[in-house]
Every structure is written in structure tokens, then in C-alpha cells.
Design a protein around this nucleic acid. Structure first.
Lengths: 208, 208
DNA sequence: AATTCAATTAAACATTTGTTTAACTTAAAC
DNA sequence: GTTTAAGTTAAACAAATGTTTAATTGAATT
């Protein structure tokens, strides 16, 4: 789907406002005003508010899906290296799109007029990929046998999401309110990435 | 705060509807109708919609806070046992209150007219407690030295929350749609609890 | 029995909501 | 230069929103 400048303004603004105020909390008037377009343009281009958020989901979820697909291609890596790449990719994706991360979390928490099938599809893909990577590692003798794969995915996704959505709190509690926003985000991204890599390593293998 | 029957009806219904549709997605009319009370009773008892959700937060958050306070009292337990108790308590609390868990997750993801200070307060308490428990364990030589405490809390809270809010998805992907809701929830609760206990043990200590 | 005050109600209130309309502009195609 | 169609606009639409009002009920207290 290729969007023109005005459509992109609407999509970006809507993503931000949906993330910060929720689907029903962000009005089309707010979106139109902040995106600097006439209200009617939203219906004109996207049909309705529902279809607008659907467009946002389609745009972003496809991005994640494609990222996962690409990851599968790399064959010659060691099992743990593949896991590490997955962690890095996933953390990077949601760190770079914190607004969409918030929308996703909200969408999972409820049934807020959101394309549930799309979410389930990409989550399923995620689960299947991790399962495959861990099983492969086990067959090669690199990973231990007794592993709750599904819960490991929950830890990966849950930890990453939680760090993103509670950024403001972490900044406060960690006494990092002085440093600039971008720098803090970058630090957080690396820190959660390293944390998860260590976590998976110590759980999946015998080493530290 | 002691509420009468009608107030409790309102609080319970509002909690459920706020969780499922978001703060702005659940109208006071919906709440009044499902709680089987007149609309005006909500303003009469709680003042406004804002103050209604604040009352919900106050009710539930205090519950968690008190639970954490009690936990600190137990002194004679081994370091890992204390961690295990914390995990069990936390998982139990949010498993038994899935609606409020959803509201909390939404509230953290955004700024949806919610008492942010209250949330930050109880989260801070949680962080401080884990920090204390881990530091104690390290001093006693039971825990390893190189541990990212803050990220461990994120993993505990993030994983637990994520499991609760994506229950429906897990049920589907795990092919457990046949078994009754209560049984499934109980299974999930024990599974995530065990998963986190193993995780913390293998990260904090040298054993498995 | 009269008084008092909390509980309860239906109706009304002013805003805000998402969406549509109909007129107008722009610019490319013929 | 005319035609065509997409882009753009302010205004209007009905419906839904949170809150208040004013009247009524109920049951204790005096």
C-alpha cells in the first residue's frame, strides 16, 4: 500500500494519539487538527475511524511479519546466535515504534475494535519461530531438553513490551530524568536486549 | 473505604467494562445498565467517571500494596524462598484479578485519566522489594553478583501481565479451547508461576 | 404524626462524537 | 478552452457522551 504525504500525516498522527489516549480516547477531530488536515479527509481516504486503525495495523504488523520471515532465511548460524538475532530484531522493532507497541498492548488487553486476527497471526508466527529455533537447538544438542517454549516467548514479548510502555516510570525510578530522550531510549533498548540474551542463554544452555 | 451493595455492583461492573473497552470505550450508561442501577447513581456515589476509576484503583492497588507489606515481615526464610513467595503472590494477585490487570496495563501504556502517582508508588515498592531481596541474597552468598535487578522486575511483571492479557490467544494457540475457563486459568497460573521461579533460580543462583 | 435526610428516578442539559453533504478548488486529460 | 475527476472545505447531521436537575420515594428520627 503506497500512501501520499497527507495520508502519511494522518496515519502517523493517528498512531500517536491512539497510543496515548486509546482508540475511543482519540477523536477524529483531534487527529485531523494535529495532522493539519480537514476532518473530512479522514473519511475520504480511510472510510472510517475503524478502518483508519486497521490501516495502521496493516502497515506495522506486516513490517514485523516480513522481519521475521527474513530471519528464518539465515541457516548457517549457531542455535544460540539465531535466538540472539531474534531477540535483537524484536526489541529493535518495538523500541523504534513505541507508539505502535502501546497500541498493540492495548489491543491485546481488550477487544477495542481492532483486527484481532492480524495480531493473532503475527503472534502465532512468533511462537512457531521460537519453537522451531529451540527444537533445532535441542536436536543439535546445543540446548537443554526441559524448556517451556511458550512461556519463554511470553517472557520475551512480555518483558520487551513492559519496558517500552513503562519507559517514563523507569526513567524516573532509575534517576535518569536529566539525560535526553533519545539517549535514554537507546540505553534501554540495549539493556533489555542484553538482559534477554543472557536470560535465554542461561535457560537454554548450561553455560553463563 | 467501606462500600454498600449498590456501590460494589457499580465498582465491579465498571472494572470489567473499563478492562474490556477502555476508559473512554465504556460509557457510564453501559456501566449503569449492566450494574442494574440508575445512571445518576454513579455521579451520586462517585462524583464523576474519573473518580469512579480512581476508586477502582484505590481499592485494588491498596490490596497489592498490603500484600507486599506482609511479605516483607517474613524474616526467617531463605533468600530464594522469599523470591519464590514474591513470585507466587504477584502471579496470584493478577491472575485472580484479570480485569484489573488489563486496566493496569492500559494505564501504564498511556495517560488515560488515571491516578499515575498511585501506580508509580506501588511499582516503586515492588522494585525496592525485589532489590532488597536480591541484595540480601547476595550478601548471604546465596545469589550471584552480576544481576540486573531492574530488568528482572520487568521480566516478572511483564511476563505475568502478558500471560494474563493474552489468555484468549494462548488458549487458542495451545489448543485448550475445549477445557473450562476456570481450569485453564488455574493451569496458566501455575505454569507461569513455575516458569518464573525456575527463571529466577537459574539466573540468581548456580543451581538448576 | 411530622420531620429529616439519604436513596432513587426520569428527564433534560450542553458537548462531543463519527460521518456525510454539497459546494468549491485544483490540475491534469482531452 | 472545455471536460473530467480527484482533492479540499465549512457546515450540518443524528447519535452518544458525562453530568445535573428537580421531583419522588423510603425509612429512620424526632
Amino acid at each position: 500500500m503506497d500512501y501520499n504525504q497527507k495520508q502519511l500525516q494522518i496515519l502517523d498522527t493517528a498512531e500517536r494519539l491512539f497510543a496515548m489516549h486509546g482508540f475511543h480516547g482519540a477523536s477524529v477531530r483531534d487527529i485531523a487538527q494535529e495532522a493539519d488536515v480537514n476532518i473530512a479527509m479522514i473519511s475520504y481516504y480511510f472510510g472510517s475511524k475503524e478502518r483508519l486503525i486497521e490501516a495502521i495495523f496493516l502497515k506495522r504488523v506486516m513490517d514485523v511479519k516480513n522481519g521475521l520471515d527474513e530471519l528464518v532465511k539465515n541457516k548457517e548460524l549457531a542455535p544460540l546466535e539465531k535466538i540472539n538475532q531474534l531477540i535483537e530484531l524484536f526489541v529493535a522493532k518495538i523500541s523504534d515504534r513505541p507508539y505502535f507497541c502501546r497500541i498493540m498492548v492495548r489491543a491485546q488487553a481488550t477487544q477495542e475494535g481492532v483486527p484481532t486476527e492480524l495480531i493473532h497471526e503475527v503472534k502465532k508466527q512468533m511462537y512457531d519461530l521460537v519453537k522451531k529455533l529451540i527444537t533445532e537447538g535441542q536436536k543439535k544438542g546445543a540446548f537443554l531438553g526441559d524448556i517451556d517454549t511458550m512461556m519463554m516467548v511470553n517472557t520475551l514479548v512480555g518483558t520487551s513490551n513492559h519496558v517500552i510502555i513503562s519507559q517514563n516510570f523507569l526513567k524516573k525510578v532509575w534517576n535518569q530524568e536529566a539525560i535526553p530522550e533519545d539517549k535514554f531510549r537507546q540505553q534501554l533498548k540495549e539493556r533489555v536486549s542484553n538482559h534477554l540474551k543472557k536470560l535465554f542463554k542461561v535457560v537454554l544452555t548450561d553455560e553463563r
